[in-house]
Design a protein around this nucleic acid. Structure first.
Lengths: 337, 337
DNA sequence: GACACAAATGACAGCGCTGTCAATTTGCAA
DNA sequence: TTGCAAATTGACAGCGCTGTCATTTGTGTC
């Protein structure tokens, strides 16, 4: 038969309520008692029944990770974040569920409400690009559902994890500048994603700081996909004055650019330097391996979830953790000839 | 305040137990009553509290999807299956959780037990490569946890979804043969994965049927990754008698082969035909677009979950659904010069 | 209309935990 | 040693639903 809390109580010669206190790490339990109870739990391999805990305690021990994969082809990114969130949840014995939640559609709030009412997550982890969708944030606040975000656009009133993407992008471009490149193109992402804005801003900042005039022809909008990288590259290669380096806003597009370069007979990095952003697994597998910005997605998912859990467990307020980035210089960038 | 089952009962002038019957689609409720109760539920936007249902009914309404991503770099594949499983679960108002579960390690059974004891899933969806791990299956049967599999190796005593991968592989190779190719190489996957075996078997079958002697040099083992495709291709290109076509056991490796071909100055498909398996998004984005076998992962995840749910809901036994495949002929394969 | 039987409905306890609040023990100052 | 507040522990009800079993209602037969 199942071991119940009551059984543990009997074994430890305390009341069920005391076992409950130990289980929930509550204060006001003597060290001696706590130890005895813990030992009994261990000895009996006690597994609290989460449905009973939820019913009695009015909490679900559930964290929901919301995402919109409609606009987000980089499923490897979401998968990594998911792994990180799950790791954090496991640490505190919370469950995790994942829910796609498309932004488009006027029944958005209804769908969000359904998720909350049906599953009662204690808290929510938001992933780009829905980290900044106003109706979502508003509704979560109205319903008092705590949430944490991965790479939110707004850096105030938010907990979770963020990276200084603008500085990272600037650093990337400065690397190209230091190699002697002057005609540096940028393939940006979907316009209203925070990631696109910051990376583009970082590019512009670096170019301006180097005293280079802005050339609109050198900035092409992509969609974070391999195919859009190919298309953007074709457009850039068709320019009368071809760029000598391309900074793509993510690795998928960067590999598209490299592919197109290969097709056009351009050697990377001899004829063209290419760099990306994210450091997806493919980046180091490509040949030549891609110079990029390392963004530890898995770790970021974990940290965001930990901030949320801190709040859920009544341990603190949580904060917006600033993530360091690192420039991964590999073989796809080189000095101009 | 929250609307409870009791409130619905009062509104519909029936006992709580009757509302419970309607909620659970049980028999022995008159059509009239059922309609009245449904209307009341609708009107009051009643949301049953799953923790109470679980506690009283001793079921969790939870489906767990288990995977081992350690050996499975194609996270896009798992993400699609996950989406499909989730869709099926939503259909029947079940929740879904995902759990990585590494096969290696002698504490495997303990880890599996922990998942079951902690979360009490009503059933489990297994994904390759853990669909055929004997200790896992044995333990699930011992604990009477129903499960369904996506592409299990054993086609007996299993419910879920499968594709005739061997026939698909054979069909792919026959396509190459029909284009006049004779020196056809195969880049296989991780040896003990079912997918690798079937695809290799299909390749051999087609070659033998065409009366071509088996040349061990033409079969190179990869690991389902882009990088392993590149490595395998290099090995094949180094052969004194280079193959004119390469059939890779998945699209990631096929794109690796194409990449390597590009690097070696081989034009695809003029100098080398390349084809893959799975039809991942990248396949149609590549240039030239990759000829491959379409494997509808998302749909397969959904179907597997539906078989499981049929069992969980006491609606039937579930079955191993055979999935049709389709050959996607694109631009990466062509007749030999 | 009376009877047998099946279908429909309801009463009630209890699933395993936690919230509330009361009871007991401990620690410490006087 | 006594007194009192603080710390610790426990008693008990109840969270919202479903299982069990009893009761009522409906249906068909002679």
């Amino acid at each position: 038969m199942r071991v119940r809390l009551e059984d543990v109580a009997r074994a430890a010669s305390v009341s069920p309520k005391t076992v409950s206190r130990v289980l929930n790490d509550e204060a006001n339990v003597s060290d001696d008692t706590r130890k005895r109870v813990r030992a009994a739990m261990e000895a009996m391999d006690y597994r609290p029944l989460s449905s009973a805990r939820s019913l009695a305690g009015n909490r679900s021990f559930l964290v929901a990770m919301l995402y919109d994969n409609n606009d987000n082809p980089a499923s490897t990114y979401l998968a990594e974040i998911q792994d990180g969130v799950l790791e954090a949840c496991d640490l505190h014995r919370y469950s995790m569920m994942v829910r796609p939640l498309r932004m488009r559609g006027d029944d958005f709030v209804r769908r969000l409400d359904a998720v909350i009412s049906d599953h009662h997550p204690d808290g929510i982890v938001l992933t780009p690009p829905i980290t900044d969708y106003a109706p979502l944030l508003q509704r979560l606040r109205e319903r008092h559902v705590p949430f944490a975000s991965v790479s939110p656009m707004s850096r105030t009133d938010n907990i979770g994890v963020a990276m200084d993407e603008q500085l990272a992008a600037r650093t990337m471009v400065e690397h190209l500048l230091s190699l002697g490149h002057r005609r540096i193109a940028h393939v940006s992402g979907i316009a209203d994603h925070g990631a696109s804005r910051w990376r583009l801003a970082g590019y512009r900042e670096a170019m301006a700081a180097a005293g280079l005039p802005e050339d609109p022809a050198l900035v092409v909008e992509g969609a974070f996909t391999f195919a859009s990288g190919v298309a953007a590259a074709r457009q850039l290669f068709a320019l009368k004055q071809r760029p000598t380096a391309v900074f793509a806003a993510n690795d998928d597009m960067a590999s598209g650019v490299m592919w197109a370069a290969n097709q056009s007979g351009l050697k990377v990095p001899q004829d063209l330097s290419v760099c990306g952003f994210d450091d997806i697994p493919l980046a180091s597998q490509l040949w030549p391996a891609l110079t990029t910005i390392r963004q530890p997605s898995r770790e970021m998912g974990k940290i965001a979830a930990l901030q949320l859990l801190e709040v859920l467990r009544g341990r603190g307020q949580g904060q917006l953790v600033q993530m360091p980035f690192s420039l991964q210089i590999r073989e796809s960038t080189a000095a101009i000839p």
